[in-house]
Design a protein around this nucleic acid. Structure first.
Lengths: 123, 123
DNA sequence: ATGCTTATACGATAAGCATCGTAGTACGGC
DNA sequence: GCCGTACTACGATGCTTATCGTATAAGCAT
């Protein structure tokens, strides 16, 4: 089969499938967040300015390149991040608006709890 | 087999291991919540009065008995619920105080999002 | 074109997990 | 004592996932 999901349109060179807002399920989101590597990615992206994105390589992960790609894909398919090709790089951004609309307070709670734990561990 | 395999501590007949508050990890909690059956249990227990518990059999799950036991165990070991033997039954209760202290807003966000989705699905 | 950077696809592997049935233990009542 | 209720432990099974290395494609610069 052709690379990814390029069904009929030949002019769309490299677009990736994202779930619509109402296709995002709570279970999938929680599962996506339950992995330390993916949590690290989300935490990083949450620290960026609104609408800004970061390349995959901008985040230093403790896993191999291909494993990193796998985790980015899980995050995208769960609806947590959006991925857009831009040149050779791929810009990842948190879908904060969608997540806040669907699960109000969830993202902040996860990020807040995580930040608090980090401070505790340092002390 | 030997009827009494309780040789060491005679005073505490049937107690189950629970993680301390500071042993509860965010990843484990999120993972425990990412299963629909376990989410159903948490939702049920959240509807009970503070400090009240429910027997395993009080919650009708769509899985077999032994699978249900497995899920209760996952929830307990992740620190989400407490389990105390009382007669032949086992009382399950949500560890709301611990969870709210560790991850403020998380539980409410999960339960609220879930309730909202349910209402949406009905309409 | 050649090469470099970035990220993906593919195939493989090992571990984890949800599920079940069956057998068994603990407790309370008869 | 004996039986029923409530839950558990064990072993099995099939699916999912996290991990990797290697090969490959797409874009940019020279």
């Amino acid at each position: 089969m052709s690379p990814s999901s390029r069904s009929a349109s030949p002019s769309q060179p490299r677009t990736l499938a994202h779930p619509e807002r109402d296709e995002i399920s709570l279970e999938a989101v929680l599962h996506a967040l339950s992995d330390p590597v993916r949590l690290q990615v989300v935490r990083y992206l949450a620290g960026l300015a609104e609408g800004e994105g970061a390349a995959c390589s901008a985040i230093e992960l403790v896993v191999s390149k291909s494993t990193g790609t796998h985790h980015f894909r899980v995050l995208r398919e769960a609806g947590l991040i959006s991925q857009v090709y831009r040149g050779t790089a791929k810009l990842n951004a948190l879908r904060r608006a969608d997540l806040d609309a669907l699960f109000p307070g969830l993202l902040d709670a996860v990020l807040g709890a995580d930040a608090a734990r980090r401070e505790r561990d340092v002390s």
